[in-house]
Design a protein around this nucleic acid. Structure first.
Lengths: 135, 135
DNA sequence: GGAAATTGGTTCAAGATTAACCAAGTTCCA
DNA sequence: TGGAACTTGGTTAATCTTGAACCAATTTCC
């Protein structure tokens, strides 16, 4: 097997993600939220509980606590106690939250798309499959 | 073009890196250094100045300051003023530093190799080509 | 029925990062 | 040349984030 330089691969991945995200960071903050908060907003529909969000996004639980608190204060998110399990906080996008979420994800998709656009559609699917296989 | 879910791809990448690194974290700390410090050690030969290290590893400069300070205190690194440019701190591995660096990178390479081993040789080459194309 | 283990979420100390800074070096023009 | 304006290397201080410990609600299993 070819010799692997872990620092190089790590740096490659890291830089790719960071450069894409920082290229849209200012546009996103103009919407009234931080980049990480946008990632949270984008997953609320699919994972409507903080613990699920933390797992799905590989974020620490305390960070999710913080982001949810800010998103709620900003009026982008509503939180209510789950009647079936009193520990859980069920989250729901407000209409304002859904609007900025859609605008933000559109921006991110365009930025990622610029990079992914260097690959064919088949290659994009291949990339995703390879990453999933390694996880 | 296929619809892109940026949060999904980001999370996938992030989780892959984190899971590999955390799988060797305890072995690395047993060597007497933190994971991030190992990444620094591994690049010192190629980038013997803090500013270069920060750029090469996509780490903030203050973090490199901190790691270098700890690595020097631990006896893994020597630091001397560059005679040609009095602002620069030229870094050099000590023999102890070189030893733990080699042990640590071996551990990391094995861990990455275990993940890459889930792909065929052709798929590994494909993955690398795709990442480089996107950067 | 209830002790032990698990899970959801928050708080707080410790860790990392961003912003501001100083010191050394370079540019460039009078 | 001389030196003002700008760039670059590195550190310090304030801010933000994370990991560890925690409490409350739930489930497990005897």
């Amino acid at each position: 097997m070819a010799k692997i330089d872990p620092a190089k691969i790590w740096s490659l991945n890291h830089r790719l993600l960071m450069s894409v995200i920082s290229s849209v960071a200012t546009d996103i903050t103009a919407l009234g939220l931080e980049t990480k908060e946008l990632f949270v907003l984008a997953e609320v529909d699919e994972h409507p509980y903080p613990a699920e969000l933390a797992a799905a996004l590989s974020l620490p639980k305390p960070s999710v606590t913080l982001y949810v608190k800010r998103l709620e204060a900003a009026g982008f998110l509503r939180r209510e106690i789950d009647t079936a399990d009193l520990r859980r906080h069920r989250l729901q996008l407000t209409s304002a939250g859904r609007k900025v979420m859609q605008q933000g994800t559109t921006m991110l998709s365009e930025a990622f798309g610029e990079r992914l656009g260097r690959l064919s559609a088949a290659q994009q699917a291949e990339l995703r499959a390879l990453l999933e296989k390694m996880l």
